[in-house]
Design a protein around this nucleic acid. Structure first.
Length: 805
RNA sequence: GCCAGUGUGGCGGAAUUGGCAGACGCGCACGACUCAAAAUCGUGUUCCUUUUAGGAGUGUGGGUUCGACUCCCACCACUGGCACCA
C-alpha cells in the first residue's frame, strides 16, 4: 500500500478537530508553554509559502512541548483591520466586513489544511467589537495617564481625492493615479512612547532575541548623552538652547544654526535679512521630507542677522538657519563647531565661516576631526582629553547656570491616528465647549457604524465624518452636544496586545483574568517576520509596559524569546511576486505533495532565520523521505512490516544511532535547528534500511520524533503499529546516555599538522598509550623516516600530532 | 556614509571551549531490477595531478598557533536596517 497523503491528512485533521486534541486548559496544573506566531493580515491573495515556515516552526515546538508534559498555548487569529479592505470597499461599494470575513475563512481553511495544532476555540479577530472593545479600553487608559495627546502634524493630503494618503501610497509626491499630494498640518493623536524610551532601551538586555533585532531597536531609540547649553541672543531677552554631545568643544563654536521652523526665527531676524530668510523658508516648505534628505548632499542656509553670546567666553556668534538642523530633534538648534563636526565643517567651508581647532589630532583643512585628543584654545579645558573635558565643561555649565547634563533620544512620539474608516474608532468625544473626554468605559465598545457607502469626506477627515448620525452625539454625563472623534487607530493597535487576549479570549468583564495572565506571561517563544523588528515589536513592548505600570499585566516584557524566519525566495532566487511569476501557492503543494511534505521541506531548507530559494527538486526530496519512512513501516498489505517486531535482535551500532537520534532531535527542536534535526532523522532511516530487524520500541520512538514536523503521517503510522491515537499526545521519547558512550575511538595521527594515519584505540587510552600507538604506526614511521621528532601533542580521545623535521 | 549580519562543492546546507572540512538532501554518473521506461535499491561524487599515491582547498591578503571554516588585523562582495539625529 502506498502513502496516500490526501486521504491521511484529511483523516487526521478531522480527528484532531472532532476530538479537540489541541484544546488548551489554561487552568491546568502542568507547567505552561506559550508559543506564538505573529498573526497574519488576511489578504485576498491567501497564504503564501512564506507563512508556513514560521508557523511550522512554532507548531513543532508546540507539539514537542505538549508531548513533554507541558500545557501548551498555541493560538491563531487575524490582524484584520487595514488598508486593502478599505480600498476594496471604496472601489466596489461593498462592506469591508464581508470581504474581510471571506478572506479569513480562506486563511483558516488553508491553515487547517497544513495541520497546525492551534486551539481554534481561542481564535481572535481585531475587527470584532468584542475584541476592539479592549483596544479602545487600553487607549482610554493611555489617555488618562497623559500618554495620548493631540498635536498638529503634517499629513499627505491629496486635494483631488479629498483624502489623506499613507506614506506607502505616495509615490514621487503623487497618488498612484498621479494626483498631486501636499503636506498639510492636521490635529492628530500622538502616543508618548518617548516617555518609555529609556526603559524600552534598557530592558532589551533581558530578552533572548537575535542580537541584530535588539541592535535595530537600540538604533531606533537612538540614545545620546551630552549637554544642553543656553545662549543669550544679542539684543533680545530670549535665549536659545542647543543640545550637544560635545560640550567640550564649546570654545570651538563659531556660529549657531536653527532649524528653519524654529520658533525664534521670526523674532530674531534683522530687517535687512528678512527677505532672504523668508525666501529660504518658503523653499524648504515646498519640499517633502524625502526631498530634503535627498538633496542634502549640498548644504544650504541663510544668515538671520542676529548674534548669540557664547556663555563660556562671551564671543558673538552669528545665528544661521539651515535645513541640516532638524526641528524635531533635540531643541531644533545647534552650536556649530566646524573643526570637530563633519556637517558643520561642510557648512562652514561652503559659507566661509571660521573654523577653530580646540582638539589636537586632525587636519581641519582637509576634514573635521571628531576623535579624541588634547584640548587647546579652551581655557580651563586645555590639556584635558575628550571625556575629562566633557565632564569638566558640564560641571562649569551647571555651576554657572547656563546648561546641564542631558540625554536625548532619536525616538519620536507615535503618530496614532489614521484618517480611515476601517480601523478601531478612537473613543473620544469633542464637546461643544472645546474640551475632549473619553466615552465612559461602560459604553465600550464604540462600534464602527455600518455605512452604505465609504467615500472620502473631502475635508481630510476619515469617511466616518460623512456619517452625521454617528458623529453628532450628546455627552451622557454633561448633556453637552458632542462630536465623535473621526480618526481611527492604526493597524498596529490591535496587534499591540493580542497575545494577552489569547490567554482569556472570551472574558466579558476585563481584558483578561489577572490570575491567568500571571500564569501564562510572558510568551515563551514568538516567531514572525523581521519586517516587524522595530515598529510592531517596539509598540507592543511600549503598551505592555504601560499595562505593567497599571498593574494589568504581571511582567514588564511581553516576548521572552524571538526568532525571525528568513524569506523563501522564488526558484530564480528573487523575491516571490506575481509580476515575476515565481509565486508558489501552498494549496497546490498540499494537493500534489501533501502538507507533511511541505512542512518537512520548509524546515529542511536551511536554518530558520536564513533566506533560501524554493526548489521543486528539494520538495521532491522531502516527499521521498516520507515515502521511504512509509515503505519501511508499512508492508504491501497495509499492515506493519514484518521486520518491525517487539523482540528484535538489535545491532549495537543501530541502537547507538537510535539514542543519538533521540538526543539530537530533541535538542535541535528545542534550539530551533530543524534542518539538522531532520537530517539526523534521515540518518536514522538510512540505518534502519540496513537492518534485518527493527525493535518496535525504536520504530515508535522515531514516529514520535517525526510527529511534530510531519504529524499526519506520524498519526497514521502510530495507528498502524497498533497504538491508541493520537501520537500527538503520546509521551516524548527519552534516550539512554550510557548507550552513547564509545568503547573505542578512531584517533587521528598527524605529522606536522597533516592527517597521515588513523588508529583505533580504547576511548580512555592514556596520553602515553596514544603517543606510543602513533609512533608505532607503520605509515607514520615512513613519514618520520630521516626526521627528528621535536614535539608530540596529544588530545585524549581525539588525535596525536607529531612535530618533526 | 553609518550600524549589524553573511561569505564553505554544480546547488540548499553541516561542522565553533581551535583538533579528520563538506554530515544530510538535491543534482549528476554508474550498477541492479525491467522487454523498456518510471519508481525503487545499491555504489560513487570538492578540485587538480603523473590516481594502491600526492598536492591544493572554507570571499581576498596578512598574522597568532604544533594545528585555523573557527581567533586577531586589513580589504572585497552581498543582504538587512538607518540615513544630516548635533
Amino acid at each position: 500500500m502506498t502513502y496516500n497523503h490526501r486521504e491521511i491528512e484529511k483523516k487526521w485533521q478531522r480527528y484532531w478537530e472532532e476530538n479537540k486534541t489541541f484544546k488548551t486548559d489554561t487552568e491546568s496544573d502542568k507547567p505552561k508553554y506559550y508559543v506564538l506566531d505573529m498573526f497574519p493580515y488576511p489578504s485576498g491573495a491567501g497564504l503564501h509559502v512564506g507563512h508556513p515556515e514560521g508557523y511550522t516552526a512554532t507548531d513543532i515546538l508546540a507539539r514537542m512541548k505538549r508531548m513533554q508534559g507541558y500545557e501548551v498555548l498555541h493560538p491563531m487569529g487575524w490582524d484584520a483591520f487595514g488598508l486593502p479592505a478599505e480600498r476594496y470597499a471604496m472601489k466596489t461599494g461593498n462592506d469591508p466586513r464581508v470581504f474581510t470575513n471571506k478572506n479569513i475563512d480562506n486563511f483558516r481553511r488553508q491553515l487547517k489544511s497544513l495541520g497546525f495544532s492551534y486551539d481554534w476555540d481561542r481564535e481572535i479577530n481585531t475587527t470584532d467589537p468584542e475584541y476592539y472593545k479592549w483596544t479602545q479600553w487600553i487607549f482610554i487608559q493611555l489617555f488618562k495617564k497623559g500618554l495620548a495627546y493631540m498635536a498638529e502634524v503634517p499629513v499627505n493630503w491629496c486635494p483631488d481625492l479629498g483624502t489623506v494618503l499613507a506614506n506607502e501610497e505616495v509615490i514621487d509626491g503623487k497618488s498612484e493615479w498621479g494626483h498631486p499630494v501636499i503636506r498639510k498640518p492636521m490635529r492628530q493623536w500622538m502616543l508618548k512612547i518617548t516617555e518609555y524610551a529609556e526603559r524600552l532601551l534598557k530592558d532589551l538586555d533581558k530578552l533572548d532575541w537575535p542580537e541584530n533585532i535588539k541592535e535595530m531597536q537600540r538604533n531606533w531609540i537612538g540614545k545620546s548623552e551630552g549637554a544642553e547649553i543656553t545662549f543669550r541672543i544679542d539684543g533680545h531677552d530670549e535665549t536659545i538652547t542647543v543640545f550637544s554631545t560635545r560640550p567640550d568643544t564649546l570654545f570651538g563654536a563659531t556660529y549657531l544654526v536653527l532649524a528653519p521652523e524654529h520658533a525664534l526665527v521670526d523674532q530674531i531676524t534683522t530687517p535687512d535679512r528678512r527677505e532672504a530668510v523668508e525666501a529660504y523658508r518658503r523653499s524648504i516648505e515646498s519640499k517633502s521630507d524625502l526631498e530634503r534628505t535627498e538633496l542634502s548632499k549640498e548644504k544650504t542656509g541663510v544668515f538671520t542677522g542676529a548674534y548669540a553670546i557664547n556663555p563660556v567666553n562671551g564671543e558673538k556668534l552669528p545665528i544661521w538657519i539651515a535645513d541640516y538642523v532638524l526641528a524635531t530633534y533635540g531643541s531644533g538648534a545647534i552650536m556649530a563647531v566646524p573643526a570637530h563636526d563633519e556637517r558643520d565643517w561642510e557648512f562652514a567651508k561652503k559659507f566661509d565661516l571660521p573654523i577653530r581647532v580646540v582638539v589636537k589630532g586632525g587636519d581641519v583643512d582637509r576634514e573635521a576631526y571628531t576623535g579624541d585628543g588634547e584640548h587647546v584654545n579652551s581655557d580651563f579645558l586645555n590639556g584635558l582629553n575628550k571625556e575629562e573635558a566633557i565632564n569638566r565643561m558640564i560641571e562649569w555649565l551647571e555651576e554657572n547656570g547656563v546648561g546641564r547634563r542631558k540625554v536625548t533620544y532619536r525616538l519620536r512620539d507615535w503618530l496614532f491616528s489614521r484618517q480611515r474608516y476601517w480601523g478601531e474608532p478612537i473613543p473620544i468625544l469633542h464637546l461643544e465647549d472645546g474640551t475632549i473626554k473619553p466615552i465612559p468605559e461602560d459604553q465600550l465598545p464604540l462600534e464602527l457604524p455600518e455605512m452604505d457607502e465609504i467615500k472620502p469626506s473631502g475635508t481630510g477627515e476619515s469617511p466616518l465624518a460623512n456619517n452625521e448620525e454617528w458623529v453628532n452625539t450628546v455627552d451622557p454625563e454633561t448633556g453637552m452636544k458632542a462630536r465623535r472623534e473621526t480618526n481611527t487607530m492604526p493597524q498596529w493597535a490591535g496587534s499591540c496586545w493580542y497575545y494577552l487576549r489569547y490567554i482569556d479570549p472570551h472574558n466579558k468583564e476585563r481584558l483578561a483574568d489577572p490570575e491567568k495572565l500571571k500564569k501564562w506571561l510572558p510568551v515563551d517563544v514568538y516567531i514572525g517576520g523581521a519586517e516587524h523588528a522595530v515598529l510592531h515589536l517596539l509598540y507592543a513592548r511600549f503598551w505592555h509596559k504601560v499595562l505593567y505600570d497599571l498593574g494589568v499585566v504581571p511582567t514588564d516584557e511581553p516576548f521572552q524569546r524571538l526568532y525571525n524566519p528568513g524569506m523563501i525566495l522564488g526558484e530564480n532566487n528573487e523575491k516571490m511576486s506575481k509580476s515575476k511569476g515565481n509565486v508558489v501557492n501552498p494549496d497546490d503543494i498540499v494537493e500534489s505533495h501533501g502538507a507533511d511534505t511541505l512542512r518537512v521541506y520548509e524546515m529542511f531548507m536551511g536554518p530558520l532565520e536564513a533566506s533560501a530559494p524554493w526548489s521543486t527538486d528539494g520538495l521532491d526530496g522531502a516527499r521521498r523521505f516520507l515515502d521511504r519512512i512509509w515503505r519501511l513501516y508499512v508492508g504491501e498489505d497495509g499492515k506493519l512490516d514484518a521486520k518491525i517486531k517487539p523482540e528484535a535482535a538489535v545491532d549495537p551500532g543501530f541502537e547507538k544511532t537510535y539514542h543519538q537520534t533521540v538526543k539530537k532531535v530533541t535538542e535541535d527542536y528545542e534550539n530551533v535547528r530543524f534542518n539538522t534535526a531532520i537530517s539526523q532523522m534521515m540518518v536514522f532511516i538510512n540505518e534502519a534500511y540496513k537492518q534485518k530487524e527493527i525493535p518496535k520500541s525504536f520504530a515508535e520512538g522515531f514516529v514520535k520524533l517525526l510527529s511534530p514536523v510531519a504529524p499526519h503521517i506520524a498519526e497514521e503510522l502510530w495507528e498502524i503499529m497498533g497504538n491508541e491515537p493520537p501520537v500527538s499526545l503520546a509521551t516524548w521519547p527519552t534516550y539512554d546516555p550510557d548507550k552513547l558512550v564509545e568503547d573505542e575511538v578512531e584517533v587521528v595521527i598527524q605529522v606536522n599538522g597533516k592527517v597521515r594515519s588513523k588508529v583505533t584505540l580504547p576511548a580512555d587510552a592514556s596520553k602515553e598509550a596514544m603517543e606510543k600507538a602513533a609512533l608505532d604506526d607503520e605509515v607514520i614511521k615512513e613519514w618520520l623516516a630521516g626526521k627528528t621528532v621535536r614535539k608530540v601533542i596529544t588530545v585524549p580521545g581525539k588525535l596525536v600530532n607529531i612535530v618533526a623535521n
